[in-house]
Design a protein around this nucleic acid. Structure first.
Lengths: 225, 225
DNA sequence: AGCATAAGTTTGACGACTCAAACTCTAGGA
DNA sequence: TCCTAGAGTTTGAGTCGTCAAACTTATGCT
């Protein structure tokens, strides 16, 4: 089906950037940045993906995966997220380190090992960061959630997903008692300072920038309305 | 410390061939065969290992790892065997398939994951084939054992290690009830035919060539003397 | 409209790993 | 001793993924 480890990385990066981008297209520069290569390198690799019918691209435009490319990207994402779940649930590693580890392991997992892993973990639907794990057939169920930054003062909510998976951010959240599944309450909002104050249940109040809060997704349990 | 996946594969192959070879040197042709490359390729890679002080080699001679190379090879072997143990013990895969899977995974395991895996498995000393797992410091304890081919008629023994790890051989052994830890008895030996007949405890008699039997190691529990 | 700047593309080169094929050495008969 | 078969080496070339640097296009500001 698909080829090298490098190709897998490009597909995954394009897939994720496409989800984020407004135009549903991944800009070449961001693909390059995501992979840590020069834009020239990204351009020539994308050319290869296009030749393999994994992506579409026109000169000076954005990159978009084909159905085939999307299917392959979801397969990689499935491997990545199952491996992360395994590293946290079975091996007990901290969620702030598993992303990088999974990045390496995801390419070495065969379908047989993947299925055994899935079974061992009880066929989980979400990984430790709350990201949905694509099913083997490529189905992906995003969970309903809103950015924590949109909560109002006094709102109570449950944390369901963390989008920013840099180790630094994850360590801050864990240290604050903000993990997936935790409930919390908005104590105060200071729009001028761009800061909100949050109290996780059973923890003490922490301050977060609105920007950081916008990358944490929650589900409202009791609104202020 | 060490470099690419390819280099790791060469080191592991040389280490294993060196153990087997009479002269404690790995012949170039066998290195090439083990890695599935031409001898020309092996020659040039070995040249690189020598430049990195991982191996010694003189023109038209055999290859021998340096202390540094041996240390690196043991590290890879540790990863390989721990992964195999994990695949069998935790994920429940059959021992006839885990070798190839571990071959891919061993290169993607970081020290942190390796240690977590080791802890999760209870710091095992042997893998599912009975091969000793090198310790993190490079210590390796070979178990005392003799080839099953050296048993005499009527001898009882426990199977402690399987050297031939091709899927075909392992499937035969498993189907016969001959797994690591099993006890067995030699029913008959027919030197002319080069065949011995074995009865695993709780199983029925199976025939094996002396050659195949020589690659199965046992510990005598009751001799015929 | 005109132009500077940011974004993307192309080109030429390189390192890692590989092969095929020509070549060289070693060792074991006759 | 000589010669040859087998093992090993060398050379030239190719693929993959990468970079640096020269070049092209698009965009947004004045």
């Amino acid at each position: 089906m698909l080829a090298t480890e490098t190709v897998e990385n490009y597909l995954k990066a394009i897939y994720l950037l496409q989800r984020e981008a407004a135009a549903d297209e991944a800009p070449m520069g961001q693909i390059a940045a995501a992979l840590g290569v020069t834009t020239g390198t990204a351009t020539s690799m994308v050319k290869k993906l296009v030749a393999a019918k994994l992506a579409r691209h026109e000169r000076f435009g954005g990159v978009r995966l084909t159905t085939k490319g999307t299917r392959a990207a979801l397969d990689i994402l499935r491997r990545h997220r199952l491996v992360e779940t395994f590293l946290v649930d079975t091996l007990g590693l901290d969620w702030s380190v598993v992303h990088d580890e999974a990045e390496r392991l995801e390419h070495a997992i065969s379908p047989m090992v993947l299925d055994a892993l899935d079974r061992h973990l009880g066929r989980p639907a979400f990984d430790p960061h709350g990201d949905p794990i694509p099913r083997a057939d490529g189905a992906l169920q995003e969970s309903e959630a809103m950015p924590m930054s949109e909560l109002g003062s006094g709102d109570a909510a449950r944390l369901v997903r963390v989008l920013d998976q840099r180790g630094e951010s994850l360590r801050f959240l864990r240290a604050s008692g903000l993990k997936v599944g935790a409930t919390l309450r908005v104590v105060a909002i200071e729009p001028g300072a761009g800061v909100m104050r949050i109290r996780p249940d059973g923890g003490s109040v922490v301050s977060m920038s609105t920007t950081a809060a916008s990358r944490v997704l929650v589900r409202l349990t009791r609104g202020r309305h």
